[in-house]
């Protein structure tokens, strides 16, 4: 049975770090990714959902049960969830089969073997984690989490210790097993591709606060903050300064301030928003390298303390000084507080 998740005004205190207040919901069978840079509170949130960290205030509801309301806390083993840890967190003294049998009392050996077979670990059933590769260890961690038949699967950066060649296989396995069981899934990661591959909805965190949330496609097409654009789309965000009246000064010239925009704005340059231009017609940058591909040639260019992706017909040599120009109207977004209507 799958479990819905509802988090309302959740605050978690961990030393001097404060997470929240956070409010979000994941419907039964939904797939949510919590993304953000290191130190944004992703893992703290996941640990609180799992029951390892107490909520200071707010409510976590798993299905119909209140898991934590700041006063009463359901112990981790009674929350009916599975957790795949960052580095496996496997039990070194147990074989793969023993992992599953310990994790799910009453699980028949045949069923455990069948699960291991699905994960491509049947041949490793009697091996201990110490002899496994990073990818195999994470597959075993996934099997262990799924063995008791949880309604909610939490994933803590599951691909972090897996090498590039094994990532795709693990992503497919995670998707397949979660889809088959119609599992509610919450993933935390700082990797955009991992988030987009495994989730349909996103929550963006920064320094313990929620920057924005919503369906992944909406956030990708219309990020409400420069922080989200930078994190999810690899945008360069140049600081701007206000000049007289409603004008904003940027390296590309001065522009009118968008109506209703807050104070801390950034000029957001998505890949391809900038072209090479004749000398003297715009700010100067230095070519770092050309990316693979021919028409147009994609160039990584250093501009101030940012790196922008510019398009050109031919690739100047690395180190060459070039002039940049905006291809379309400039896009100004607040740094990390979405514009309130």
């Amino acid at each position: 049975m799958t479990t819905s998740v509802a988090v309302v005004d959740l605050c978690v205190h961990r030393g001097s770090f404060q997470l929240g207040p956070l409010t979000f919901a994941v419907p039964s069978g939904g797939r949510l990714a919590v993304v953000g840079p290191s130190g944004s509170g992703k893992t703290t949130l996941l640990r609180c959902l799992a029951g390892f960290e107490p909520a200071a205030s707010g409510t976590i509801r798993l299905g119909d049960a209140i898991a934590d309301d700041g006063r009463r806390r359901l112990p981790p083993d009674r929350r009916g969830l599975g957790l795949v840890f960052q580095d496996g967190a496997l039990w070194p003294q147990m074989t793969a089969l023993q992992h599953l049998q310990f994790a799910a009392p009453g699980l028949a050996a045949d069923d455990a073997l069948a699960l291991l077979r699905r994960a491509g670990l049947e041949a490793r059933a009697n091996d201990r984690p110490g002899t496994m590769s990073g990818g195999e260890a994470q597959r075993l961690g996934l099997c262990r989490a799924l063995a008791p038949g949880p309604g909610l699967l939490l994933l803590d950066e599951p691909l972090r210790s897996v090498d590039v060649h094994q990532r795709d296989g693990l992503v497919l396995l995670l998707r397949t097993l979660a889809d088959e069981r119609r599992l509610t899934t919450i993933l935390v990661t700082h990797d955009r591709d991992e988030a987009l591959a495994l989730a349909t909805d996103l929550v963006v965190l920064r320094e313990g606060r929620m920057v924005e949330s919503g369906p992944a496609q909406d956030l990708l097409q219309r990020p409400a903050t420069a922080f989200t654009a930078a994190f999810l789309l690899g945008a360069a965000c140049l600081p701007v300064s206000a000049t007289d009246g409603d004008r904003l000064s940027t390296p590309f010239g001065t522009f009118a301030r968008p109506p209703g925009a807050p104070g801390d704005l950034r000029l957001v340059l998505l890949p391809g928003d900038v072209d090479l231009a004749p000398p003297g017609s715009g700010p100067a940058g230095r070519i770092l390298c050309a990316l693979p591909g021919e028409d147009p040639v994609r160039l990584r260019v250093a501009l101030a303390d940012q790196i922008v992706e510019a398009h050109a017909r031919a690739a100047p040599p690395a180190g060459a000084e070039v002039t940049l120009a905006l291809r379309a109207a400039p896009r100004f977004l607040p740094w990390h507080e979405p514009t309130r209507p």
Partner: peptide, 14 residues
């Protein structure tokens, strides 16, 4: 010993 391995044990209904 990694704390995470012990936390993984806390999730198990034993």
């Amino acid at each position: 010993q990694p704390v995470a391995a012990e936390e993984a044990g806390l999730l198990v209904a034993r």
